[in-house]
Design a protein around this nucleic acid. Structure first.
Lengths: 161, 161
DNA sequence: TTTTATTCTGCAACGATTGCGAATTGCCAA
DNA sequence: TTGGCAATTCGCAATCGTTGCAGAATAAAA
């Protein structure tokens, strides 16, 4: 279940970088430690606001940026809307649901055997793979959605005229 | 060299969909036909403005959106800045330069042999692979950049004191 | 405790994109 | 060829995610 480092470790990292450990940052450390959802800054801000009303969205952005530049988080942009933040695990890739936009980590084997055609002197340093499709929850509710297009259902118990 | 369909073909597609063929659209059809750079709406707008001063950025967006929803173009979001548009070729992937942000198409073999670990009931419908690195031009100028960190160069011809 | 550099916050500004309304115009029919 | 009308263009305002800035608040060293 390796995610982001523990709040204590992150505090140490911040101090080691000459940054201060504030209540706002500690809260975010805790929230990130418990999070596996690749949250946006705003999603994190919403949760943080419940435990610390008045915390600024600006501070959330700032802290996420700091963590990212220290290598503790990675930022992703799956769909051109909001940036997602997640623990900086090693080589891994993502699945993103086209319905609910939730993301999850996946491990992919075989990337080293990919044959890339058409690089003209381009030197590849890294690769990001995003698999798109439907998560199991959305696949389930998709069925329900199609059922809602039925306009009327006659009960087997009702009298039929 | 298969790119987007020819201006004539695109005009036919538009009419077939009940859309009109305007001078603005014809211009964009021509520009896209000659383009291999995965341009942004704004980049296309700049070029279009040279040939048709007064064309609106709004119209460029509109036409790109139309072409995309008709399946003639695909839109990509590599870096969270501006959306890129390119001919809707089949299964292909991209290389993106981390220095100049230019993108190019690549063909990748072996994707069907990828082993994906950690899908919990997620059904994969498609995959996008983005290879990041340095294009050959930027790799070349990167060398020059490091040379500029030299503070002074003494000419072999100059007198030394 | 005092001090001070860092951080927080709120707000304004930014770039990309879209909604909208008024003026313009492609295109079909007569 | 000429209306006539729906589609299109244009410009502007508004939106969203994100960042710059400045003044108030504060962590932490002395």
């Amino acid at each position: 279940m390796s995610g982001v480092r523990s709040p204590t470790e992150l505090s140490a990292v911040f101090r080691a970088n000459g940054l201060r450990v504030t209540p706002q940052r500690q809260l975010l450390f805790r929230l990130l430690y418990a999070d596996t959802t690749h949250p946006t800054a705003d999603a994190l801000f919403t949760v943080a606001s419940e435990q610390m009303p008045g915390i600024s969205l600006r501070t959330v952005y700032q802290t996420l940026t700091d963590l990212t530049s220290m290598g503790e988080l990675q930022s992703f942009d799956f769909d051109g809307t909001a940036t997602r933040f997640a623990p900086n695990l090693g080589e891994h890739h993502h699945v993103v649901c086209r319905s609910c936009a939730k993301a999850a980590d996946v491990h992919v084997d075989g990337t080293t055997h990919l044959r890339i055609d058409g690089l003209g002197g381009f030197s590849v340093e890294s690769s990001d793979i995003v698999f798109r499709g439907l998560c199991s929850e959305c696949a389930a509710s998709a069925t329900i959605t199609s059922i809602t297009s039925i306009t009327s259902i006659t009960s087997s118990k009702g009298s039929r005229s």
